[in-house]
């Protein structure tokens, strides 16, 4: 008999027992592990998707921020460039103005210096001319020349004394001195002619001899001069030179109108006696 029914029953029990054992020790643990891994995998995938979305969002935000920063950078660069251009223009303008001002100052300085040099040259020329003239007149001065000039002086004195407005003796009392200066000593005759002329203009008996005082003065170069308080009459070559100096100063003023120093302050006007001939 191929079939042993006891063995059949035992094998059925054995197989059912094996089913229970394998289900308990094999299938259930393995399937649980697989389920746990699938859950873990699903969780990892979900987390990865979430991270991916977050990364995408962050990337989007980063790109936006980057774009914003780029715009700000461009704006700042533009602003800085504009400010730099403005500063450059301002500095250039200021530098140009300063340069122009310095150039003008330099030109003015050169012009002033040129004028001063011209003035100095003119002054020195005049001084040289005056010195030469003075030297010539001094060397040529002589008694005879003084006599000639004395004759002319007497004529002018007579003319002055005949006029009441220019009469030097008007208002003159006995205490006032009448000073007569000459390059060379006047002779007695010449002194008498002067006193006589003054006496005639006085038209009185008062004697003027004690009031007239005679002096020698080399500053007159050649000639004669009479002066009282507030009045003076001179006829000498020094007066010619003084007139020449005055005219030269006036000419220099006309030629150099921008000069800072007036011609009247030039050495041309220096005079030893400081007086101008009223009649001349």
């Amino acid at each position: 008999m191929l079939i042993d029914w006891f063995t059949v029953g035992a094998q059925v029990l054995n197989f059912l027992l094996l089913v229970w054992l394998l289900k308990h020790f094999l299938y259930q643990p393995i399937l649980n592990a697989i389920d746990a891994r699938e859950r873990e995998t699903a969780k990892i995938i979900n987390d990865a998707e979430k991270i991916k979305r977050e990364a995408s969002d962050q990337l989007h935000i980063y790109q936006q921020n980057n774009q914003l920063l780029e715009q700000q950078r461009q704006a700042l660069i533009t602003q800085a460039t504009d400010e730099a251009n403005q500063i450059r223009d301002r500095l250039l303008n200021k530098a140009n103005q300063d340069a122009q001002q310095l150039t003008q100052q330099h030109l003015a300085s050169i012009s002033d210096e040129f004028i001063a040099i011209q003035q100095d040259i003119a002054t020195k020329n005049l001084l040289e001319v005056f010195a030469i003239s003075n030297k010539v007149l001094t060397e040529l001065a002589s008694q005879s020349l003084q006599e000639s000039m004395f004759a002319l002086f007497i004529q002018h004195l007579t003319a002055a004394c005949s006029n009441m407005t220019t009469n030097p003796l008007v208002g003159l009392d006995e205490h006032n001195k009448i000073l007569v200066r000459s390059r060379f000593a006047l002779s007695q005759q010449q002194q008498q002619q002067i006193e006589q002329c003054l006496q005639q203009s006085l038209k009185s008996d008062t004697t003027l001899t004690s009031q007239v005082e005679y002096q020698h003065s080399e500053a007159l170069l050649c000639g004669i001069e009479i002066s009282t308080s507030g009045w003076k009459l001179a006829w000498s070559s020094a007066n010619y030179l003084q007139q020449l100096q005055q005219r030269a100063s006036e000419l220099a003023k006309q030629l150099l109108p921008n000069t800072t120093q007036p011609a009247s302050e030039s050495p041309v006007n220096v005079d030893d006696n400081g007086a101008n001939g009223a009649s001349l």
């Binding site: 191929l2 079939i3 042993d4 029914w5 063995t7 059949v8 029953g9 094998q11 059925v12 197989f15």
Partner: peptide, 11 residues
């Protein structure tokens, strides 16, 4: 064994 296969077939 036919007993085993029969037992499995019966199951």
């Amino acid at each position: 064994s036919l007993s085993t296969t029969l037992a499995l077939a019966l199951c």
